[in-house]
């Protein structure tokens, strides 16, 4: 019988070595991986638990931004004294994943590397222009979040590589973000569509920068440059929001499946982006 071994390294180098094996899988919260192992969908021969590596759990302010350890659970994100004030969209997206119990385990890296097109935290991180710090056999490198997932269940990480941290960039005044998703229920569900919007405004409420990212409407989460562009220089007047919504619909390339039709997903993505943009704008105006 095939045996499953479990390793809990205490250094990055050890973990890189352990993950270089052909069917080793990295574990942080395990809320996706362990379910897949039990159901037989994932059949690793080795599970490498990253939580004991120093720095992989925790949030620290650095160079005006935040560095979030890759195995930090959702509950820690919401409990951090300032993270939710600066990046409410990222935190609310991460906190939508699963139940209260799941929030005690589930991590940003797990949500990203599970590589589901519907992952809630991913569009919010992309809109926030977050980057990943990746450790691997060749040392560490940094990459934008949107470059990690290449298709459903597939990532650009090579053998031995794993994410050790996420970096959220420095935030000026009058800036904020928001994430909304559509699910048939009110919780404990997978997004039929999701939209993250991050804005920075001038003192008059005019958008200096705007980023719009979508989930569950394509094989990977999408950064929709045209949608962000439609908002820049505006105070989110109806015409700007309409142009943004058009850009969102144009970018969608969803499938029809048990969770929703392609037509519905496209319509909803625009509705969610519109609503998230308004929330982000209102939040940004409140910021000092």
């Amino acid at each position: 019988m095939a045996q499953l071994s479990y390793l809990s390294p205490s250094s990055v180098d050890e973990a890189v070595k352990a993950l270089s094996g052909t069917s080793a899988r990295a574990l942080s919260g395990g809320t996706d991986l362990l379910v897949q192992v039990r159901s037989g969908r994932a059949k690793p021969d080795q599970i490498v638990d990253l939580k004991r590596i120093p720095g992989l759990i925790g949030i620290r302010a650095e160079n005006g931004g935040f560095v979030i350890g890759s195995a930090t659970c959702g509950a820690m994100l919401s409990e951090h004294p300032t993270l939710s004030k600066i990046w409410p969209g990222v935190v609310e997206a991460a906190n939508l994943i699963g139940s209260t119990q799941v929030q005690g385990r589930a991590s940003l890296a797990g949500n990203l590397c599970n590589a589901s097109p519907a992952a809630d935290s991913v569009p919010a991180l992309i809109a926030a222009r977050a980057t990943c710090v990746i450790a691997g056999p060749a040392g560490t490198r940094e990459a934008a979040v949107e470059t990690i997932v290449t298709g459903p269940g597939k990532t650009s990480l090579t053998a031995g590589e794993f994410i050790i941290a996420f970096k959220l960039p420095p935030r000026g005044p009058k800036a904020s973000d928001a994430y909304l998703r559509m699910i048939p229920r009110t919780e404990m569900d997978i997004a039929v569509a999701g939209a993250g919007v991050s804005l920075a405004l001038d003192a008059d409420g005019v958008c200096l920068s705007a980023h719009v990212a979508l989930g569950a409407v394509a094989p990977t989460a999408l950064l929709v440059a045209d949608a962000g562009q439609a908002l820049i220089g505006t105070r989110l007047e109806e015409v700007a929001l309409t142009r943004m919504a058009e850009a969102v619909r144009a970018a969608c390339q969803p499938i029809s499946d048990k969770r929703g039709t392609a037509d519905y997903r496209t319509k909803i993505a625009a509705v969610l982006a519109h609503r998230a943009a308004v929330i982000a704008w209102n939040r940004a105006k409140e910021q000092a």
């Binding site: 229920r185 009110t186 919780e187 569900d189």
Partner: peptide, 10 residues
Amino acid sequence: LDYRVPVASD
């Protein structure tokens, strides 16, 4: 997950 019985908050 995809056979959606109501959850308490529904």
